[in-house]
Amino acid sequence: MSDHTATWYNLYDARPHSEVPAESPLAWSYHHSGRPSVSQKSRVVLRERAMAGHLILRGGAIVLDEAVRGVLGFGLPGRPNTLTLDERGERSIQWLSPDEWLLIVPGGEEFALEKRLREALGDAHYAIVNASGGQTLIELTGDKARELLMKSTPYDVHPEAFPVGKGVTTVFAKANLILRRPTEERWELVLRRSFADYLYRWILDAGAEYAIGVEE
């Protein structure tokens, strides 16, 4: 192994102040496929947490954990396929692979956070990639949300196999996404931008029998 680590990197704000409003990967889908409104009959409700900050952290678990704890106040999940949340449940870190984690924070925080993490990590061997523009996060709630998932993914979403605090990357309607369960009631799906429209339409179709509603 080489003793050299990169000391130079591109760091730029992916969300500069501009006149042109930023749009989520689902903006066109809302326009084109519409948003069924939430009614009394809706047993599944979809809500997008658009424009959140997504950072991919790569490196050794111990080094990253120390830096993240110092900056954010909570650490990396210790076990595969799990996630940790801060006290308010706004920020989360999910295990993606033995040397890779997904950090999701409220939109607008990610640039400053990336800078602070880089300062905390110094010349350690690591990588941080801002993936905010490449993916979006949607939430499914309602008593039939699990049934909708059962129709779409081969992964076992029974509460015994998928307890709160679990998160996996898996197949969903022949595409792939990150499926996670931060609380008892809520399922989160992290969609890639290129699959977002397809998956949105798939979910509307799969949720039609449960009168799925999309919150504004």
């Binding site: 595969p80 396929n81 692979s97 081969p154 996996v168 197949v171």
Partner: peptide
């Protein structure tokens, strides 16, 4: 062996 669980062949 990395995810430490069984997954479908599709993956």
């Amino acid at each position: 062996p990395y995810c430490e669980e069984h997954r479908e062949e599709e993956e």
